Simulated assay, not measured.
Amino acid sequence: MLTLTQLCSTILENARQFHLSLTAEERCRSRLHCHSDEGESLYLKLPRGITLQPGDRLQNEEGTVMVMVQAKAEPTLKVMAATPLGLLQAAYHLGNRHVPLEIHTDYLRLGADAVLQTLLEQRGLKVTFEVAPFCPERGAYHAH
């Protein structure tokens, strides 16, 4: 099992390279046993508070392995509204519940949840179940 501990900003020329598809929840964990898309057993050991983003690169301490992080498709709800105000109101109500939310100009995406789906549908929004990569907004105090 390979232990990955560092974020890498450059591509390591001679390193073995793997891809790691993780759900939004898994990308927030600082310790995680997982497998690369190629089947390699991996252990993530990252500083607390790190949220991995698609495109991030990890490496082992020796610099002999590099792993590219990807967003894994997972059960989600896609929320659309007839008006921009309807979409803003949906974002407001979901934000009041501290729901992780992916925000786009014409739709919102959140993790699949039957209770929230009912709430949104009762507000007249179109809610569609999808299995899709989910990349919620980072916290307000996270630097871009």
Rank of each mutant, 00 (worst) to 15 (best):
T3E: 12
L4W: 03
T5P: 00
I11S: 13
L12D: 05
E13V: 14
F18H: 13
S21Y: 06
T23I: 04
A24E: 02
E25T: 10
E25V: 10
E26I: 04
C28H: 07
C28R: 15
R29L: 12
L32E: 00
H33L: 12
H33F: 10
H33K: 14
C34M: 02
S36I: 06
D37M: 02
E38C: 07
S41G: 04
L42A: 02
L42T: 00
Y43S: 06
Y43I: 03
L44S: 01
K45W: 03
P47D: 08
R48S: 14
P54R: 07
R57N: 06
R57S: 05
L58H: 04
Q59Y: 01
N60F: 00
T64S: 15
T64F: 10
V65N: 02
A73L: 04
E74L: 04
E74F: 05
T76F: 05
V79M: 06
M80G: 02
M80E: 14
M80I: 09
A81K: 02
T83Y: 10
G86N: 07
G86K: 07
G86L: 06
G86M: 08
L88S: 14
Q89A: 12
A90T: 05
A90H: 08
A91M: 10
H98L: 11
H98Q: 13
I103D: 06
H104G: 03
L108F: 02
L110Y: 01
A112K: 12
D113W: 04
D113G: 04
A114H: 13
A114W: 09
V115F: 08
L116A: 02
Q117S: 14
L120M: 15
E121H: 10
K126P: 00
T128V: 15
P133E: 02
F134V: 04
F134H: 00
E137C: 11
R138S: 14
A140G: 09
H144F: 12
